[in-house]
């Protein structure tokens, strides 16, 4: 009914946070580290800053919410005139809509965030391994 609103709201928050972090990162130069690349090549590199990793979450949340909103338009649940959500006009349907947002909507936001957290954890391990391998070879 309107479950996409929950991830879209999270996307607004994460976008603001990533923009603030990007501005702060621009003021401080990222430290250079030594890392091992493909085929054992050792070179100077900079780790991917956290705001860039947060952008991955932004893309997933915005993209998913946008495509889900289209699905709701397709099913006639979102309309281009007030109150925009067809369920908002009827008290019983409104209660169902809020229940769906609290269950499916929150579950969507949590799953996307959990998957992103997993990707960030794996990427951090890859970065650390590359730096460790370079330190061992030097």
């Amino acid at each position: 009914m309107a479950c996409f609103i929950v991830p879209a709201t999270e996307a607004i928050v994460t976008t603001v946070v990533s923009k603030v972090m990007e501005k702060k990162a621009a003021q401080n130069a990222a430290p250079t580290v030594c890392a091992e690349f493909a085929h054992g090549e050792i070179a100077q590199a900079q780790r991917t800053p956290f705001y860039k990793k947060l952008m991955w979450l932004n893309y997933m949340l915005w993209g998913g919410a946008f495509l889900l909103a289209f699905e709701h338009v397709w099913h006639g649940e979102v309309v281009p005139f007030f109150p925009f959500l067809t369920a908002a006009g009827d008290p019983i349907e409104r209660a169902q809509m809020l229940h769906e947002m609290a269950t499916a909507g929150v579950a969507m936001a949590v799953l996307v965030t959990a998957v992103w957290a997993g990707i960030v954890a794996v990427s951090t391990v890859i970065e650390k391994r590359a730096m460790k391998a370079a330190a061992e070879q030097q």
Partner: peptide, 17 residues
């Protein structure tokens, strides 16, 4: 990639429900 994976995860939740 991010856009389609994000939408896939959201539809997966929909499918589970």
């Amino acid at each position: 990639c991010w856009m389609f994976w994000g939408a896939s995860l959201m539809w997966l939740v929909d499918a589970v429900f």
